[in-house]
């Protein structure tokens, strides 16, 4: 400890402290932003599913959406939103919402796959709506990533960023990152337009095109970034920040060494 307290006056002490602080915040940030994945299989629903779903719904969702999913002042009607919407909202942990806010956040799932299916079955029974896509719809082996890139850049990149990293919307809302999101959930999001996202129905982006978009996103997701560290794929801001922090510190380190007297 004594040695340490003596060295605190060393000219490099501030620098060392800064580097340590940067590493610490970077590390914490990396830990804090690890995403969790969710996956579920689609099935057809039995009457029992619907019944179970209704029970789950009434005990977990009715506070906001009403006993018959007719909607209240604090939550929209779910009649006609379809199984796809439920599978997305509940399957990604967005619903049930923790609290009212600008938009529902992704968080650990509250229900397992079976319960999610039951909820979806119940809501689907209330009115016709988009169904959960089956595995064939989202099989990237059949997709065309070049076409997907075109559609993604024209329809999605303005909110979700060209590399699918997400971006800001008005007044605290945001478009989330698409990295690490399952194929099915991407498909469902396009189909149902969760939160403030516009709906991209099959007339706008056909099912084949949706699969192409997913293929492109999975291409970005599966492949490493060729250039090295991606810096979050956020573009010039993170690059500028990099050169002004790490770049500058390294350069200063060398200049200090270079101009100091050898012992």
């Amino acid at each position: 400890m004594k040695a340490l307290s003596q060295k605190r006056r060393h000219p490099m002490a501030a620098l060392a402290l800064l580097v340590m602080a940067l590493l610490l915040t970077g590390g914490l940030y990396a830990v804090a932003t690890t995403t969790n994945e969710a996956k579920a299989e689609t099935t057809t629903y039995s009457a029992q599913d619907i019944e179970e779903g209704q029970k789950l719904f009434q005990s977990n969702c009715s506070t906001c959406h009403g006993m018959k999913a007719q909607g209240t002042s604090s939550g929209p009607s779910l009649i006609g939103v379809g199984a796809s919407s439920v599978d997305f909202q509940v399957g990604t942990g967005r619903m049930p919402m923790q609290m009212q806010g600008p938009q529902a956040q992704v968080k650990p799932k509250q229900f397992n796959e079976e319960q999610t299916d039951q909820l979806a079955a119940y809501v689907a029974s209330l009115g016709a709506g988009p169904t959960v896509p089956d595995a064939k719809d989202v099989d990237i082996a059949d997709g065309n990533s070049a076409n997907g890139a075109k559609i993604f850049l024209a329809n999605c990149a303005m909110c979700h960023n060209a590399a699918g990293q997400g971006g800001a919307l008005t007044r605290g809302k945001y478009a989330p990152s698409l990295m690490g999101v399952s194929e099915k959930h991407i498909y469902e999001a396009m189909q149902t337009g969760p939160q403030n996202m516009p709906v991209f129905n099959d007339a706008n982006i056909t099912p084949d095109e949706k699969r192409d978009v997913i293929t492109y996103l999975k291409t970005l997701d599966n492949n490493t970034t060729v250039g090295g560290f991606s810096l979050g794929s956020l573009g010039p801001v993170s690059e500028g920040l990099f050169i002004w922090t790490i770049g500058l510190v390294v350069v200063i380190g060398f200049t200090v060494w270079l101009t100091s007297r050898a012992a």
Partner: peptide, 15 residues
């Protein structure tokens, strides 16, 4: 001219 991406910024010196 049609597409654009979230987080459209210039390099730092034009920021």
């Amino acid at each position: 001219p049609s597409p654009v991406q979230a987080g459209s910024q210039p390099d730092w010196y034009m920021g």
